[in-house]
Design a protein around this nucleic acid. Structure first.
Length: 366
DNA sequence: CGACGTGTAAC
DNA sequence: CCTTTTACACGTCG
């Protein structure tokens, strides 16, 4: 049967959610900020709505820069992840009814396998997409953009072509003309580094990449990545839509000042661990591996990790983190840290959950 | 093979 | 001026 996959992306999600809960800012340029607390405007932009993007404000940009670009109407708001997650959970819950399999790709994106639900008909798939858009508009007053394609890659890329509030389908027979003239670097999964490497080999477009010598690509990228690159370049993607189970949980934060003082850094780790605790308990998981994440004054990131006996106790994680921190600082005698984080991985899910049966089956059958 | 650290990518 | 969270691939080591 025809495989049909959908990708749903909530439009400027954080900014849109804020606009709904604060009617007084409706229609104004909105910038959602992650303040790091080092100075009044230190931090980065998480999302900007379309009006704010009109000034050149983009996610990842320093808040101070965004403020210079903005006009007097622009509203700067603090990022409130807990609230956004609530809204996201309600929406993702609704989507489960509309597909065979739901894969939540991030807080504001999901893939839906609708092959059966649509009976392999593109027309039915579009009807489903319109129903989803209407439902999200009616219940949450939010818009989304949906792409439909024969696989996840094409669904994702189709959705990008029309935003906000778009609906775009690329059928099998349209894949070639959709992708071949596109810059290779615009293909989902090909980032700056890979695009530059391709460029240096004279590969500009997806078409160039698709017909390039597989052997030459293997030399540069290795067999596996070379094959994936050439599949992507043809709009091919076999990866299944599957429910995701978190593999790791981490928290990272910015220190008030650059430091290599163990106590100061450990205080921050304790703070961050409180956030981990909440999620660990909610998910009812234990873990076997603990890592610390260290970002130095030059923004270089390094990690240290250790596998211990399985535990669900965050204090055990903190103890391990402290010893890793000691080790890290003695290995790096003149490095000061700007940011620090803690991560638990090698997760073991405790309670029998509906979502887990599938996961365990897949996991043990490999 | 499992553990560990790094690089790449995306949000 | 420079945030946060997650996933996955790969090389290396024992």
């Amino acid at each position: 049967m025809q495989r049909i996959v959908m990708h749903m992306d909530l439009d400027s999600f954080y900014a849109a959610v804020e606009e709904k809960r604060r009617p007084e800012i409706r229609g104004r340029p909105i910038v959602i900020c992650v303040f790091s607390g080092r100075s009044a405007d230190s931090g980065a932009v998480a999302t900007a709505n379309y009006r704010a993007r009109g000034f050149g404000i983009k996610s990842g940009m320093p808040i101070a820069m965004a403020k210079r670009l903005a006009d007097g109407e622009t509203v700067f708001l603090r990022y409130d992840i807990d609230f956004y997650r609530e809204v996201s959970d309600r929406i993702m819950g609704m989507l489960e009814e509309d597909c065979d399999v739901l894969e939540q790709a991030s807080i504001d994106e999901a893939y839906l396998d609708v092959s059966r639900k649509s009976m392999g008909s593109w027309e039915n798939a579009e009807q489903i997409a319109m129903a989803i858009k209407r439902k999200i508009r009616e219940t949450e007053d939010l818009t989304c953009s949906i792409g439909i394609g024969p696989n996840k890659l094409m669904a994702k890329m189709a959705g990008k072509t029309k935003k906000p509030d778009g609906l775009t389908a690329v059928k099998d027979e349209d894949v070639g003309k959709f992708i071949s003239g596109m810059d290779a670097g615009k293909i989902h999964g090909i980032g700056a580094k890979t695009a530059e490497a391709l460029n240096s080999m004279g590969i500009r477009t997806a078409g160039d990449l698709a017909k390039f010598s597989p052997l030459a690509l293997e030399q540069k990228f290795g067999k596996n990545k070379a094959r994936l690159l050439q599949e992507k370049a043809q709009g091919r993607d076999e990866s299944p839509v599957e429910e995701r189970v978190p593999q790791q949980i981490s928290r990272i934060g910015t220190l008030r000042q650059d430091t290599r003082d163990v106590d100061e850094i450990f205080e921050k780790l304790k703070e961050l661990a409180a956030g981990l605790e909440t999620r660990i308990r909610k998910k009812n998981v234990s873990f076997r591996t603990v890592s610390i994440i260290a970002i130095d004054t030059g923004l270089e990131m390094q990690t240290r990790s250790e596998t211990i006996a399985e535990t669900g106790d965050v204090n055990a994680a903190l103890e391990t983190a402290k010893s890793l921190l000691h080790k890290f600082l003695s290995d790096n005698p003149d490095r000061r840290l700007r940011r620090a984080g803690i991560r638990v991985s090698n997760l073991v899910y405790k309670k029998e959950q509906k979502s887990l049966g599938d996961f365990a089956t897949r996991y043990f059958m490999r």
